[in-house]
Design a protein around this nucleic acid. Structure first.
Lengths: 268, 268
DNA sequence: TGTCGTGATCTGTGATCACAGTTAGGTTGG
DNA sequence: CCAACCTAACTGTGATCACAGATCACGACA
C-alpha cells in the first residue's frame, strides 16, 4: 500500500470546514477497555460469577492496569461488575428477585422506547431493523444455529429499534439494563442454541416489525414486551440464577463458572 | 461519658451472633468522594458549566487525586460530569432538547415508581413520606423560605417514595436521572426561593400523599407527574438552559457560572 | 485422619511521578 | 493600539511503586 502521500494542507479553500467538523473523539485507553468489557458482558461471553483480575485483563489487552481500573470502576458503578472487598472483581450473579425486577424494568423502559420508535422511526431506520430481523431469522434457523451470530443480530435489532426512538439518554438507560441482564440471557442462548428455534422470538420480532410499518405504538410495545417476557420466562425456568438471599455469604460459591472471555480475546 | 467498660467477651451464649452480622461496608475513599460529588450535584451546589479540577477537588477533600479520578470517571460514565479532551472536567450544560428528554424519562420512570410505591408501601414508609412532606411545607413556606432545606426535604420525600417501590435498580435509575437534572433544577430553586411559595409543588405533594394513603396507583402517578411537569415547565420558561446545538464549540462559554461548592465544603 | 495456624502469593487501593496537550498571560513586533 | 507569538502553569492520562487485606496450599498439632 504505497499510495502517494496526501499533502497535509488541503484546507484553505473553505475556512468554515474546520469549524464544521465535530470535536474528534479522542478516545482514551480507558474508554476502549470499557467498550471491550461492555461488549463481552452484553454478548454473554463473561459468565455470571466469573472472576476477573485487573492485572490479568490488563495483560490480556496489552495495557497497564490503569485503564482497566477505570473501566472496572465505571462498570462497577452500574453494578455491571461487582468488586468484592479484598478478593477480586466478578460478574454479578443475579438472584431470582433481582432478575425479576430487571425484567419488569425492561418491560417498562424498552416498551416505552418501542412506542416512541413506532412514532418517530424513519423509513431508513425501519429498513435497518428489518435487515437485522432477517439476519437473526437466518442465523437462528440455520443448522446448526449460529448462536453467537444470532445473539449479535438480536442485539443489533433491539438497539436499532431503540435508536429510532431518538432519545439518547433512554438508549443509555437500556444499555445499562442489558449490561446486567446480558450475562445470563446470552450465556444461556449460547449454551442452548436450540431455544432459538422455538420461534417465539422470531414471531415477536415479526409482529414488532409489522407494528412499526403500520406506525402502531401500542402493538409495537406489546410485541417487544412479549419478546422480553418470553425470554425471561425461559431463563427463570432453566435456572442458573442465584439463590434468593442476596448477600450470599458462604452459601455456595462452589459452582465454578465456565472461564471464557478474557484470555480468548486476543491482543487489543 | 465514663460508662463502665463493657468486658470484651459477652459472646458465648449465641455462637451464631458472629455469623449474623452482615459484611461491613468497607467504604473505599473513591466511594466517599463519589458520594460527596453526587450529593453536590443533586443539591444543585455545582452549577451547570462549572469547571472542576481533579487536583483542586483532591486538595479540597484532603485526599490524593486517585480517588477523585475514580469518582469523576464514574460520574462521567453517567454523563453527570463531562471531561473535555484536553481542558478540564465540567458540569454539563443541558440543551433544551436534552432537558426535554430527561423530563419525559422522569415522567415515565418516576411515574412507574409512584405506582409501585402506592401498591407496596408500608404504613411506616407512608409515615416517613408524610414527615418529609410536612418538613418541605414548613421550610418552603417560611419567611424567608429555606431554599437549601427545602431542596433537601424535596429530595428526601421523592426518594422515600421511590424506596417504597422496593425495586433497588429502579431507584438507581432515578438517581442517575436526578444527577443530570439536579444542577439546573435545584440551582434554580436555590436562586429563586420564592418559586417554592407558588404552592404547586405543595399541592402535588399533598395529592400524592393522599393517593398513597388510599393505595391508588394511578392517582399517585398522576400527582407525581404533575410535580415533575410543573417544575420542568418553570425551568424551561426561566431559561438558563444551553443552546439547542449540543456540540457548542466556540459558541458561548462566555457565561461564567457561579463558583460555589467545592471550596466551601470543608475538609475530608 | 481431621483441623487449625501460617506464610507465600495475589487482590484492589492509594500515592507519586512523567508526559503530551491545552490554556492563559505577558511580551514583543508590527 | 492591536495582533501575534511565546512561555509558564495547569489539565487529564498513563505507568510504576507501595501497602493492607484476602486467598490458598502446605504442614504441624491434636
Amino acid at each position: 500500500m504505497i499510495a502517494p502521500v496526501q499533502p497535509l494542507a488541503p484546507e484553505p479553500p473553505r475556512p468554515s470546514a474546520i469549524a464544521a467538523v465535530g470535536l474528534l473523539p479522542r478516545e482514551t485507553l480507558g474508554d476502549r477497555v470499557t467498550a471491550e468489557l461492555r461488549a463481552l458482558l452484553v454478548a454473554g461471553r463473561l459468565a455470571p460469577g466469573e472472576k476477573l483480575s485487573l492485572r490479568r485483563v490488563a495483560e490480556a489487552l496489552g495495557v497497564s492496569i490503569m485503564p482497566v481500573r477505570e473501566a472496572v470502576s465505571r462498570l462497577a458503578a452500574d453494578s455491571a461488575l461487582e468488586v468484592l472487598p479484598g478478593r477480586a472483581v466478578r460478574v454479578p450473579v443475579l438472584t431470582q428477585a433481582q432478575f425479576r425486577e430487571l425484567t419488569r424494568l425492561r418491560l417498562v423502559v424498552e416498551g416505552f422506547a418501542a412506542e416512541e420508535a413506532a412514532r418517530n422511526a424513519t423509513q431508513e431506520q425501519i429498513a435497518a431493523i428489518a435487515a437485522c430481523e432477517a439476519r437473526f431469522r437466518d442465523l437462528a434457523s440455520a443448522e446448526p444455529p449460529d448462536a453467537a451470530g444470532a445473539v449479535a443480530a438480536n442485539r443489533d435489532l433491539h438497539f436499532a429499534l431503540y435508536e429510532a426512538a431518538a432519545m439518547p439518554t433512554l438508549v443509555e438507560m437500556i444499555e445499562r439494563l442489558w449490561l446486567k441482564a446480558g450475562p445470563i440471557l446470552n450465556l444461556d442462548m449460547r449454551d442452548e442454541p436450540r431455544r432459538l428455534k422455538g420461534g417465539s422470538a422470531m414471531q415477536a420480532h415479526a409482529a414488532l416489525l409489522d407494528a412499526l410499518r403500520r406506525r402502531d405504538p401500542v402493538q409495537a410495545r406489546d410485541a417487544l414486551q412479549r419478546d422480553i417476557a418470553e425470554a425471561a420466562a425461559h431463563i427463570a425456568a432453566i435456572g442458573r440464577l442465584g439463590p434468593e438471599s442476596e448477600p450470599g455469604r458462604s452459601t455456595d460459591e462452589a459452582r465454578r463458572p465456565p472461564h471464557i472471555g478474557i484470555e480468548t480475546m486476543g491482543e487489543r
